[in-house]
């Protein structure tokens, strides 16, 4: 089953078209980069795929479910169980510590205490932050915060992760480490990823790269297989 299918999607803000008939497909476990200049519509597309914004026309299907048929409650369920987002500025909940941030979506999803604790320990260890599990967000470095955000995104075992400039706020060494982590986790758990980026470096972990301009996909590169 395809992880994501976007068909002829259009979206306007105050009669100003932002997306003009965008179409793309992501297979299960596939990683793709979405590149393009500022204002080309990358983040809007990401918001629409994540169900935070709605499209005007066209169709988005995530893991076989059409988003246009979902009401607000259905979109919330989608975000709780199927799609996760990783932000450029991490967006950790500032009053929760690292573990609690990772645990939070699991609580929303209604997992039992034992199941949650087990999964949080496992994920925190997987992103290499066991020693910082109880640190508050403001006590963490940028790289550590992004690791927590990735662990949080993985916690619900999503079919698709949307990453908006995941390394945009990190130095190159830390950024590389985060990309390696995303790649290995995506491979290990079979999660598809759509990464919005300005950086060519990000494309090294992607099988495909979509080029966006003026609200349209204007090009597509297939990565060479190693």
């Amino acid at each position: 089953m395809k992880a994501l299918q976007v068909s002829k999607v259009t979206k306007s803000y105050d009669a100003d078209p932002v997306l003009r008939g965008v179409s793309l497909v992501l297979e299960a476990g596939e990683r793709a980069a979405l590149m393009g200049p500022s204002g080309s519509g990358k983040s809007t597309l990401l918001n629409c795929v994540g169900g935070i914004d709605r499209v005007d026309e066209g169709e988005i299907t995530v893991d076989g479910r059409s988003l246009s048929g979902l009401d607000e409650e259905g979109l919330c369920q989608l975000r709780r169980n199927t799609v996760s987002t990783v932000f450029q500025f991490f967006h950790l909940l500032p009053t929760l510590n690292a573990s609690e941030n990772v645990e939070f979506p699991l609580q929303l999803a209604g997992l039992s205490d034992g199941e949650r604790k087990e999964r949080v320990t496992e994920l925190i260890e997987e992103v290499g932050l066991s020693h910082r599990a109880h640190a508050m967000p403001h006590e963490l470095s940028g790289g550590e915060m992004q690791r927590v955000a990735i662990a949080r995104a993985l916690s619900i075992r999503p079919r698709l992760i949307l990453a908006d400039e995941p390394t945009g706020n990190l130095d190159s060494t830390t950024g590389d480490a985060i990309l390696d982590l995303l790649e290995s986790l995506s491979d290990r758990h079979g999660i598809a990823m759509l990464l919005v980026t300005h950086s060519r470096n990000v494309t090294r972990i992607c099988e495909r790269t979509f080029e966006m301009r003026d609200g349209k996909i204007v090009g597509q590169d297939e990565a060479e297989s190693e």
Binding site: I52, E72, R80, F87, H91, L108
Partner: peptide
């Protein structure tokens, strides 16, 4: 930003 995060994590408006 926190509200957006909550929504992206699946919290409903009522929640």
């Amino acid at each position: 930003n926190e509200l957006t995060t909550l929504k992206s994590l699946g919290a409903t408006r009522r929640e």
